[in-house]
Design a protein around this nucleic acid. Structure first.
Lengths: 336, 336
DNA sequence: TGTCGGTATGTTAGCGCTAACATCATGGCT
DNA sequence: AGCCATGATGTTAGCGCTAACATACCGACA
């Protein structure tokens, strides 16, 4: 059957075989091959078998680039995160892609590195690949980025926050309320000198504002805010810059754990429960590590993977509720 | 100048503007617009200005899908990792994309979830988007996957290991030697009852084999191996299944930290140096957290981001050395 | 004055596929 | 016998862009 024709496994097939190469070999038209690939039910079993045989012999791999151009459907979604390494956003990307990959969608990943200009460039780069939706952490940092997204006329899902006027859809939680919840808890514990440490991205800032709001409303002194590098190692020495601090809310668990390392060095960390801690520490993210260290880290648990799954759903379904609040939980352990 | 034509910001541009729409508006041919986008130096300044004006007015976003089909260059690379959440592979993806994104390449991300069938599906899905290279963690689990990659005739970079017969290029380190290095260290410390805990993926298994090899060569008893779930929480209780164990090599830092939590619960963890630990623990990955906890985690430090950057280089440059050993370091701290 | 090299722009064809619409049997029904 | 629904397959055009090859124009030069 496969007499003198070159089989890719054994000889160099110079160019990738196309639909019509398969069609010729199977003695059908190319549309029939296309149907075998996309809608096999519409093809008679014998024809289908013949075409599948030809595809196997030639090692045919469909060209989705051409298919996308012809059908105006790329079956891809663009995902923009600040950073993927050591980051809780990886959970969201995982949740998203777990839902989307089985449906034949691919994830095009881009990182903004917390840089507005790079974010705009990445947004433009993503859009030029004509994804069927864009999922991003946060909201566009510039009006230019927002304009690009609005003009794209595809589902846009902003995540990890609940912007007042989203471009299209939202899956996240209220960072302001998270800050408030932490402050309420610490104030109720009787802590008076409070501080916030971490980055100064929009979401961290909203946590800070909620945190501060409650503290001022409680009649306590203005809390301090320390802007730190994005790696946790820097927060090890943060304690030196916060004399007399009684409680710290860290913008994420990594910073919290770094800060705790600093406290340990200063002899201010106890093995006992929160009430025994000279300085209470609360993180955000609920890293698995936080549960395993001692004292176990108290934290705001957010649902990174649920955010990703919800974003996927918002991407696929354009009607219905476009604003999903996944909430958060204050998980109290031994650090504060 | 922009008399009665619809501007996207103000009215609904039903379809995305195309090159020829821009061309018509600027009074040039579409190839000139294409040149303004791709090779502006070849266009006279006044013409260029006119075209750029038209692009701005229409909100033109180039369609790379069409461009890719016409030029047979997609400017994309496929990346396949077992998982991206909570994983050291995220460093590699970050390193890769940091090098590639500025060059106009996009990263198409797929996860195999340590599942051979899913890996094959993802490989086929990636390939059908005609990436200009594939970077994957490890090597294809099936012959089918390997065949797909070989037939693709694009650079293929296998990472995080040093396979004997790679498909094309490799950027990684020797997992077997890493296991050996840990065993040598623990044996020299005088530890006799050794165990390995973690996953059973090919890389972990190579670590185990190197570990075991040295132990047997030293005349010690056969070490035990515990296959654990991929989350660290399971390793908290692993200690109960390893009575009398004196040292543990964990396939990754998360498992190591989980195991240490179990030791702490059992009263077998000291604040002192390695020599004071009843049970030594060594991890792999050098998570930032490992340095911050107490006792600080001893670990094999690998260069996840360098693997990504090297993979990017191997992707762009097809000649030269195709096998890069990024090495590893045994970092001794207080846990073992 | 004719020609030549360089610069700027245009024309043509086609990348590999799919949407939309034929076409053509087949067979059950009235 | 004629009709038409149904199923299987084919034809045609075109998605939005780029490669490769024209073409036109300009001034310099012998």
């Amino acid at each position: 059957m496969s007499s003198d024709l070159t089989v890719p496994e054994t000889g160099p097939a110079d160019a990738a075989p196309t639909l019509s190469a398969v069609a010729k070999r199977a003695g059908v038209s190319s549309i029939t091959v296309s149907r075998v690939v996309r809608t096999p039910d519409l093809v008679a079993p014998e024809t289908r078998a013949r075409v599948e045989q030809a595809m196997r012999e030639l090692g045919y791999v469909p060209n989705l680039v051409a298919g996308a151009l012809a059908s105006a459907r790329t079956n891809s979604v663009g995902v923009l995160v600040p950073t993927i390494a050591n980051s809780i956003f990886a959970d969201t990307v995982q949740g998203l892609s777990d839902k989307l990959e089985p449906l034949g969608f691919s994830v095009i990943l881009a990182q903004s590195r917390y840089d507005a200009a790079r974010e705009d460039r990445m947004l433009a780069a993503l859009l030029s690949r004509r994804p069927e939706a864009i999922v991003m952490v946060g909201s566009p940092a510039t009006e230019e980025g927002a304009r690009l997204l609005r003009n794209a006329r595809i589902p846009i899902v902003e995540t990890w926050d609940l912007p007042a006027t989203p471009i299209d859809a939202v899956a996240g939680f209220d960072n302001y309320k998270a800050g408030m919840a932490v402050a309420k808890h610490l104030v109720a514990q009787g802590r008076r000198q409070l501080a916030f440490i971490g980055g100064d991205d929009p979401r961290a800032t909203r946590r800070w504002l909620g945190f501060r709001e409650v503290i001022l409303a409680s009649g306590l002194a203005e809390p301090r805010r320390l802007i730190l590098e994005r790696n946790a190692t820097g927060s090890v020495v943060a304690h030196a810059r916060l004399p007399d601090v009684e409680a710290v809310f860290a913008a994420n668990d990594a910073h919290a754990i770094g800060f705790m390392a600093g406290l340990r060095n200063a002899g201010l960390l106890r093995e006992g429960p929160a009430s025994a801690q000279p300085v209470a520490v609360i993180g955000l993210g609920d890293l698995e590590m936080g549960r395993l260290i001692s004292p176990a880290l108290s934290t705001i648990s957010v649902h990174g993977d649920a955010i990703g799954r919800t974003a996927a759903a918002l991407t696929l379904e354009r009607s219905g509720e476009r604003r999903v609040d996944l909430g958060f939980e204050l998980v109290l352990r031994d650090s504060g």
